[in-house]
Structures are given as structure tokens and as C-alpha cells.
């Protein structure tokens, strides 16, 4: 009678012989444990510690990357504070805008009308009434921001102190200055000056100083007389 191979256990002697043969194979394949169970446990504990250390290291790397990314983003959003009050302090970075206005990127000075336009605002100015340092249209850039500066603008050579000063001009030439005229009542107006200075009212000069970064373009038009 043919054997039915679909049964889970081949009936009769055949199955017993296969079982016996396989069990003999398994019996001959037995080997004693290579060491005590404690060695197995130690290896498992070491593996777990290594895995946890790897997870901690990976977590630290991820955390460090997150901190670095956040720091980079925050640094990019910050604006540097205005320069200290020295005559030679230069603040190349854009000034902060305490009132939330955007930085000035273009200044236009009309010497005919004695007006300065910047950041959507118009300020009266005083221009030098002698020597006519500004001849024709001139395009230049702000080269320096000085919170406080001392220079002589008077024909008498008297040293004056001025606040909220913006120096501008070409590198190879003497700079020109925008500055706060203090309590001078000649803004707008013309005043005798040996330097190429353009005066603004103190509050206006301060606003312009606080909103104008180095490199801002200045266009001067009109005549000084």
C-alpha cells in the first residue's frame, strides 16, 4: 500500500526509522556548554551597556546638533548694538532699529532745498556756505558711524563736539560729515564751514544715525549756494 505523504507523521516503521535516524544525528551533534551561564549573562549585560551608551551618544549628538542649529538661527536674527561713544568708533554692522523701522538704505540730500530724505522721512539740513565742497551731483557712501566726534568746522579753528555723526565720501579724499548740529538754530540754513559738513537737528541726526548702516549710499544734488 503506498504511503500517504500528506500525513503529519508518516505511519509505521518508516517514520520511526526517520525519527530514530534524525535523533541519532542530533544526539551525535550535542556539545557541552562552552562555559558557565554567568559568562552568558555577563556578555548580555555588556551588550546592553554598549547599546545604551550608543543611544546616549547618539542622543547627545542629536541634541548638540539641535543646539547648534538653534544658536545659528538665533545669532542670525540678532542685531549688534550701536557703537560705544568714542570719536573713532566705527560700527560696520547695521544699527538696531529701536522703533522697529527698517534700516536706511539710501540717503538723498538736496542742497538747493536743504532737505535730506531717508527711510521715508524728510529732514531739514544746514549746508556749508563757503567753499562749496559739493559740486554737482555726487554719489558716495557712508564710511563710518561715530556716536561722538570732535572736529573743527569753524573758520576760527575752534574744536567742536558733535553727536550722531555719519562720515561719508571716497576713501582717497577727506571725508564729509552728517552730524547733529546741537542747539544751532541754523537748520535748515547755511552756515560758514571749512569742512564738508551737513548739519541736522539733534533728534533727526540721532534717528538717521540709528537707522543708517555703513555702506549706505548717499546722493547729493543741487548747489550749495
Amino acid at each position: 500500500m503506498p504511503h500517504d505523504p500528506t500525513g503529519p507523521a508518516a505511519p509505521g516503521e518508516g517514520a520511526d526509522r526517520l525519527t530514530n535516524a534524525l535523533r541519532e544525528v542530533a544526539e551525535q551533534g550535542r556539545r557541552p556548554a562552552p562555559g558557565p551561564g554567568a559568562a552568558v549573562r555577563r556578555r548580555a549585560v555588556l551588550r546592553r551597556r554598549t547599546r545604551r551608551a550608543g543611544l546616549v551618544s547618539a542622543g547627545l549628538v542629536v541634541a548638540g546638533a539641535a543646539v547648534l542649529t538653534a544658536t545659528t538661527l538665533l545669532d542670525g536674527a540678532k542685531r549688534p548694538a550701536p557703537p560705544a561713544a568714542t570719536a573713532t568708533t566705527t560700527a560696520p554692522a547695521p544699527p538696531p532699529s529701536p522703533d522697529g523701522d527698517t534700516a536706511v538704505d539710501d540717503i538723498r540730500i538736496d542742497l538747493s532745498t536743504l532737505e535730506l530724505r531717508a527711510g521715508g522721512r524728510t529732514f531739514p539740513v544746514s549746508a556749508p556756505g563757503m567753499n562749496q565742497p559739493f559740486r554737482g551731483d555726487a554719489v558716495t557712501r557712508v564710511t563710518e558711524r561715530l556716536r561722538h566726534a570732535r572736529f573743527s568746522v569753524s573758520p576760527t579753528g575752534e574744536i567742536e563736539s558733535h553727536d550722531w555723526v555719519l562720515a561719508f565720501g571716497r576713501p582717497e579724499r577727506e571725508p564729509h560729515y552728517l552730524y547733529g548740529a546741537g542747539t544751532a538754530t541754523d537748520v535748515p540754513g547755511r552756515r560758514p564751514s571749512t569742512l564738508s559738513v551737513i548739519g541736522l537737528r539733534t533728534a533727526d541726526a540721532r534717528w538717521l544715525y540709528e537707522h543708517t548702516p555703513v555702506g549706505t549710499r548717499i546722493t547729493i544734488t543741487g548747489t550749495g549756494t
Binding site: 542530533a26 551525535q28 551533534g29 557541552p32 551561564g37
Partner: peptide
């Protein structure tokens, strides 16, 4: 731990034999 060690010592040879039948490699 003691139970595991005892289980390991007793079962290891038997399991190796079974896996030898399965793999054919000691």
C-alpha cells in the same frame, strides 16, 4: 540568575544537537 545558569547548562547540549540536525554544521 541561578535558574538561568542551570537552564543554560542543561539545555545547551540538547539545543546544539537539534540545531546541528538543522544546520549540519557543528
Amino acid at each position: 540568575e541561578e535558574e538561568f545558569d542551570a537552564f543554560y547548562t542543561a539545555a545547551f547540549p540538547r539545543l546544539v544537537g537539534q540545531l546541528y540536525a538543522f544546520t549540519g554544521d557543528h
